[in-house]
Structure formats: C-alpha cells, structure tokens
C-alpha cells in the first residue's frame, strides 16, 4: 500500500483517534468485575457439585456396567439363536425373459421340396428351418372349404419336376421369380368343423415353369374332445399353371419356401370374443364367424395360421384386400389382439 497515496485519509483517522478522549469509568469496570466474579463462583459451585455428587461417582457402577452386560448378553443371544433368513427371491435380479422354446409340435410342418428331374427332392431339416428367413411370399392364398380338394392331389400339368416344400405359416407374398402367379389355395377342413387351417400356397411364380407339383403336407393334432378345434391332417397338392420346371429347380431357395404352422391342440372349447361379441363355437374360425369377428362383410377367403398354442393369425381376403388379424388365446378365449393390418414377419419374430 502506498502510504503517501492514502496519507490524507489515514492522517484523518489518526488525528481523530488522538483527539478522542474516552474516559474509562472505573465504577462501571468494578461493577462488571463483580458480575464476572459472581458468575465465576457459580461455575465453581457447579463444578464442585458435579465432582462431589453421588450420582457422578456411582453412575457407571449403577447403570453403565449392568447396561453393558445386558447388551453383551443380547448380542450373544442374537448371534446364536436368531436365524434371520432372507428369501433370495427378494434380492435376486429378475431373470431375463426366456425366448419361447419351440417344440417339435410347435414347429411348422415340414414340407418336402418339389421334386425336380435332375435333383432329388429336398427336405428341410431342423437346422434349415431355423435358418429359414421368414419372408412373406407375394402369392395371395385363397382358402376354400373343400376337403376333397385338399386331400386329392392335383395333377400337374406338364410337370417335369415335382417340388415339395414347406409353406410359411404366415406368408403374405412370395417371390420366386419375376412373375407372380396366384396359386391355388387349399384349406384344410375338419369333417365336422369349418375351420380353415391350412393354407396352401405354392410359388409358381417362378420363371417360365409351366407345371410344378407342390405337395403340401400338414399335420394337425387329432381331435381330443368335442369342443376342441382341430384341423385335420391334410395333404394338398397344388398345380401351378404356366410354370417351367427347369427354371424353378434352380431358383427355389429354402428362404423362399413357405412354412405352415402346426395347428395346436386345445383341450377345452374356446370362446372367441370380439369386443362385446362372444362366439361360443369350436368352429369359430370359419368364414362366417371370422367375418363377424373382423367386421368383414364378404370375405372372399379366410386362412388361419397357427403360430403357437396361444396365437393364431387369420388372413382374410376381402374385395381384393388382404387383412391379417392376430388372435391371442387368453384364458381359453380367443381374442383379437390387433385389428390393424400387420406384417407376418414381425409377428413371427
């Protein structure tokens, strides 16, 4: 600090201080001294009282020691006799959701590949199935409720190779070649029920194949009770038109093969609910009921794909528009869970 710079202000302060004449009143000083002395005496008395008091001397012997012993005994008792078990479930982290395990029953029906002249018919094994990409075929499937057609093989026209393969469980469009041909659709039908279960779609869109024979085999569980919805085991052979076997034999891949899901076995009679509509029938998946459920007026064709025990996809063609509905089985009741048109691919995954 520059003393000269602040000398004017500091000189003022010192001048005022020197001129100050604050008189110290000794009487006041003595009064405060007496006050302090009184206070000191009080402090002394309190100290002496604390030191001489019976409580101060014997408080530990009277309370402290027994309390310590009691605490020790309690601690020993707690460690030896008390078994506090904490359930592991309370603290274990929640296990991650396991992916659904597919059993053989749940797997789609194996369909043999169409036989070719030059090559033996291909059959998908499990590994191939797992690796199969669930791509939707472009072919639209029309279901018909004629059991005769499904069981009776269709004679191929100008067939040079026989192609047997799997059908997709939920296929929308199958593209094998540049040309898309609408195949014939077959629907498996119970003898007693009108449940369209099997969809038969063949990829006859391939290049220039005039005649290919597709053998579709689908196993369905046997009927257990009266109320059980059971699609029958059907075998359908579809005869595509205007197909050339030579080209199809080279371009058909496992990924393009349609796969058909196995129908599930139900032990009790399902009840199909659509909003406030409840249909109590084991043939609820027939065309008529599905029309009610999905509010379709005149469905051209309906096809049911069994995804699992608790899920079914229904394909409805109406006025040239294909709609897909997912049915969830909740407490033995089939309920439409989604009304929107959706892609099968997302559902299957």
């Amino acid at each position: 600090m520059n003393k000269n710079y602040f000398s004017d202000i500091t000189d003022l302060f010192f001048k005022v201080k020197n001129e100050e004449n604050i008189q110290i009143d000794e009487s006041e000083k003595a009064k405060i001294k007496n006050i302090l002395q009184t206070r000191i005496n009080e402090i002394k008395n309190v100290k002496e009282h604390k030191q001489d008091s019976f409580w101060n001397k014997w408080r530990y012997q009277l309370i402290g020691a027994p309390a310590s012993l009691l605490a020790l005994v309690l601690a020993l008792y707690a460690t030896t006799n008390l078994n506090v078990s904490i359930p592991k479930e309370d603290f274990s982290p929640t296990p991650p959701a396991k992916p659904p395990v597919l059993t053989d029953f749940d797997r789609p029906l194996v369909k043999t590949a169409p036989k070719l002249e030059t090559k033996p018919p291909r059959t998908l094994n499990k590994i191939q199935e797992n690796e199969t990409d669930f791509k939707l075929p472009k072919t639209k499937y029309n279901t018909t409720a004629t059991s005769q057609e499904t069981q009776a093989p269709v004679e191929p026209e100008n067939t040079k190779s026989k192609d047997t393969r799997e059908k997709p469980a939920t296929s929308q469009e199958t593209t094998v070649g540049p040309e898309t041909v609408k195949p014939r659709n077959t629907v498996s039908q119970n003898t007693q029920k009108d449940i369209p279960v099997i969809m038969d779609g063949t990829d006859t869109t391939s290049q220039k194949t005039t005649d290919t024979t597709t053998t579709n085999t689908q196993k369905e569980p046997a009927t257990s009770q009266e109320t059980t919805v059971e699609p029958e085991e059907t075998t359908s052979t579809v005869k595509p038109e205007n197909t050339v076997s030579e080209s199809t034999s080279t371009k058909i891949t496992t990924s393009s093969l349609p796969i058909i899901k196995k129908p599930t076995e139900t032990s009790t009679s399902p009840i199909y609910i659509h909003k406030d509509k409840t249909i109590k029938s084991q043939s609820a998946f027939n065309k008529e009921n599905l029309a009610k459920l999905t509010s379709s007026k005149t469905p051209d064709s309906t096809t049911v794909y069994y995804i699992s025990d608790n899920q079914v996809i229904v394909e409805i063609d109406e006025d040239g528009i294909t709609k897909w509905y997912l049915f969830d089985k909740i407490k033995d009741n089939w309920t439409i869970s989604k009304y929107k048109k959706f892609r099968t691919k997302t559902v299957v995954k």
Binding site: I22, K29, I32, L36, I40, I43
Partner: peptide
Amino acid sequence: DPEKFMDLYTKYYDQIYRYVYR
C-alpha cells in the same frame, strides 16, 4: 481455574470498552 479469567478481564477491559463505546 475461572478465577484466572479476571486477569484477562483486567488486561483487555479498556480496549473492549473503547471499541464498544465508538
């Protein structure tokens, strides 16, 4: 010994008194 506090009081009374007086 609180009695010794009186020495501190005697020593600093004037300083504190002037300060508070100002």
